[in-house]
Design a protein around this nucleic acid. Structure first.
Length: 259
DNA sequence: ATGCCAACGGAACGTTGA
């Protein structure tokens, strides 16, 4: 089974590229983030024609997460248990489903903006709710993984320059502690191989030639329980999908399972 | 070659992202 996660930065703007990528890569399950479209506007027919069911949670202009599957899509949960609100809104940042015997979460962790911004506390609170929500799944015997855009670089190696990013979000101790807390309930980082260069970054800013210069971050992760982790046969970041006109600023993380 | 920000809503440009 092939499972992937991809922050596509608008489902509508990326639909043609997504369909081409589905055809070439043939994933069974795809966790998507940053749909930037309402649930009612999801192009379900085009995806169905490609062979995929979709379960989505979408606010409209921002956020939005989904799970695509061609191996069944059941027991959908939208949102975390006790998910915190921001500015009075519980945003579309998490969705779960069981696909082909594997339970997956697609999550879009809040950015945090700046360390002294309310969005940063919101980010940490989201992590707390995430850890609490996925506890049972992590401890279960069913292959289980939380995939998505975590907006945290797990280590200093996961960012092109800690010096350039000094004092910013994504690399602070509270964020890394929050990520570690999720892992400590029994979920391990499925570390991918890089298709080029020495490190599997998954995000490169559109600006400043960051992609050609490989000024990247590894923030798109898959945290897996033992049943999922032991089945991993291969994992890679498909940086080729970051190339060309109309690319997302994130590349897909692809995981092959022997199940 | 991978190439200098993109998408959204709404109809100009401010907001968001990481």
């Amino acid at each position: 089974m092939r499972v992937a996660t991809w922050n596509i930065n608008s489902l509508k703007a990326r639909l043609e590229r997504l369909l081409l990528w589905l055809e070439s890569t043939e994933p069974d399950v795809v966790c998507l983030q940053e749909l930037k479209c309402a649930e009612a506007d999801v192009p379900a027919e085009a995806l169905a024609a490609a062979g995929y069911e979709i379960a989505a949670a979408g606010d409209g202009r921002w956020n939005g997460v989904a799970i695509l599957s061609r191996v069944g899509l059941a027991d959908v949960q939208r949102g975390l248990d006790s998910q915190p609100a921001y500015d009075g809104q519980v945003e579309s940042r998490a969705i779960a489903a069981t696909c082909g015997g594997v339970r997956v979460w697609s999550v879009y962790v809040p950015n945090g903006r700046e360390v002294d911004h309310p969005h940063f506390a919101y980010k940490l609170a989201f992590f707390d709710a995430l850890a609490e929500t996925v506890k049972a799944g992590a401890a279960g015997k069913v292959p289980f993984a939380v995939l998505g855009d975590f907006n945290v670089c797990p280590s200093d190696d996961d960012i092109w320059s800690v010096e350039e990013w000094a004092g910013t979000t994504h690399i602070t101790k509270p964020e890394r502690d929050a990520l570690t807390a999720v892992e400590s309930i029994g979920l391990a980082d499925v570390f991918p191989r890089a298709l080029k260069h020495e490190w599997p970054f998954s995000y490169w800013d559109y600006r400043n030639l960051d992609f050609p210069k490989n000024r990247g971050l590894r923030i798109d992760l898959a945290l897996a329980n033992p049943a999922f982790k032991t089945a991993v046969a291969d994992a890679y970041v498909d940086r080729n999908e970051r190339k060309g006109k109309g690319a997302s600023d994130h590349a897909p993380l692809v995981i092959d399972l022997d199940l």
